[in-house]
Computed example of a mutant assay.
Amino acid sequence: MSPDATDAAPRRRIPAVRRGLWWAADYVYAARRQLAVLALPWSIGRPRPVPPRWRSADESLPEVVLLPGVYEHWTFLRPLGDALAAAGFRVSVVHGLGMNRRSIAATAERLRAELADLPAAPTGRVLVAHSKGGLIGKHLLVSEQAAAEAGAPSALGLRGLVAVATPFGGARRAVLLFADPSIRAFLPGDATIVELGLAAHVNARIVSIYGPYDPHITEGSALVGATNVEVPMGGHFRVLQPASTHRAVVDGIRHLTAG
């Protein structure tokens, strides 16, 4: 990944057959991950603890905070968290988000409150998100920068956001589930989507990672002014799986915290 790669390459046309195969494999992967979440042991009313190996870290590296997408428990991102822990990062999650169906703004505020209660490491924090999690992360970056410009102190230590398959410009296909407010919030004309789109001043603190085809986000996830990285795997969920995505996330964190 080049630190100067702020503009995405022109999108190439993907043959319909390949798109169909990617679409099918995408939902198989998502179903497997959801079943894996349900199979994990836990006690009702108590948060699921992160794996012990996520707590040890190279002290020279920033803390990573995982943010899942809509209808995703944080454990949906466990393979990515395992890869980041193996790379030496301390990996954290925010408990109490459930299946992430609250509004983007309300969830960003909950995230801010949770992070404010825990002292940031000297090396800071990087948000690593999937889908809606990227919108939540950008919302927090915008609000924290606005507070800083107004002279309000912040102890969150945010260095930036690495987002995978995030609909920064909205997703027209959200209209297919128009009755669900959690999905309707992704429509391009939604007030929060429009507001975040206008907040381009934080885009330099964002690395956006995506595949060549996303059946949920036909508009793509490239973000003007951000560092945009395309990985070989197509899909909205399955793009989280390959080592190429894990390497891109690690490289994105290093890019955001360099210097």
Rank of each mutant, 00 (worst) to 15 (best):
G20A: 14
G235E: 05
G197Y: 08
G98N: 14
H130T: 11
T245V: 15
L141S: 01
K132E: 14
V37L: 04
A165G: 14
V65H: 04
G96N: 13
G134L: 06
Y210A: 09
L256K: 00
D82I: 01
R159T: 00
P41D: 13
G252A: 05
V91A: 00
P181T: 06
V70A: 13
G45T: 12
D190S: 09
V65F: 01
A116G: 05
A9F: 13
N228K: 09
S143V: 11
P68Y: 08
G157K: 00
P47M: 09
A152G: 06
L21R: 08
L115Q: 06
R11I: 05
P51H: 04
E114I: 00
S131V: 05
L67Q: 08
P3S: 03
P49G: 10
P51L: 03
D4M: 13
Q34I: 07
E195F: 12
D117M: 12
A106R: 13
S131F: 01
F186Q: 07
D58A: 05
R159D: 02
Y213L: 02
T75Q: 14
H255M: 10
L80H: 01
G96Q: 13
G81V: 08
R18Y: 11
V91S: 02
I44F: 11
S182A: 15
R159F: 00
W74T: 13
R53N: 11
V93Q: 06
E72H: 15
P153V: 09
G169Y: 10
A85E: 01
H255D: 07
Y213R: 01
M1D: 11
W23Q: 12
A24S: 08
W54H: 02
P49H: 12
E63W: 04
R247N: 11
G252K: 03
D58G: 07
V224M: 11
K138H: 13
A108G: 15
E59I: 07
I14A: 08
G133E: 01
E219L: 10
M233F: 07
R238G: 01
V249S: 03
R159N: 02
